[in-house]
């Protein structure tokens, strides 16, 4: 896990980690109203995101978990089921 985000009034946001091998790719391959779906066998796009864990505010970078299996689970909102 990376350094802690500064906790202030500004809401911390996630950021896309650029893939150095594919620098020519547009940063976000999504156009308005169009969904880009991930392909099986493709590298999972890297990112760093603010997180809450063990009663701390922290940051999580996906590529810090290389060497382990990762379950990445999206859900529509807190206070709903998974």
């Amino acid at each position: 896990m990376a350094e802690k985000p500064a906790v202030g009034c500004k809401r911390p946001s996630a950021k896309v980690e650029k893939n150095p091998e594919k620098a020519q790719q547009p940063e976000t391959p999504v156009t308005k109203g169009e969904h880009h779906m991930i392909q099986i066998g493709q590298k999972a796009p890297d990112f760093t995101a603010p997180a809450y864990f063990n009663n701390e505010f922290t940051e999580v970078k996906l590529s810090d978990h290389l060497g382990k299996w990762v379950v990445l689970c999206f859900y529509p909102g807190d206070f709903t089921f998974v």
Binding site: M1, R11, P12, S13, A14, K15, V16, T28, P29, V30, K32, G33, H35, H36, M37, I38, P45, F47, A49, P50, A51, Y52, F53, T58, V60, L72, F74, P76
Partner: peptide, 20 residues
């Protein structure tokens, strides 16, 4: 486990799961 925040759906868009 860490609970991540995806403000604006930036990461969801990359993974094709963001509902605009």
């Amino acid at each position: 486990f860490p609970m991540l925040s995806d403000g604006g759906g930036t990461i969801g868009k990359m993974y094709g799961v963001y509902d605009q």
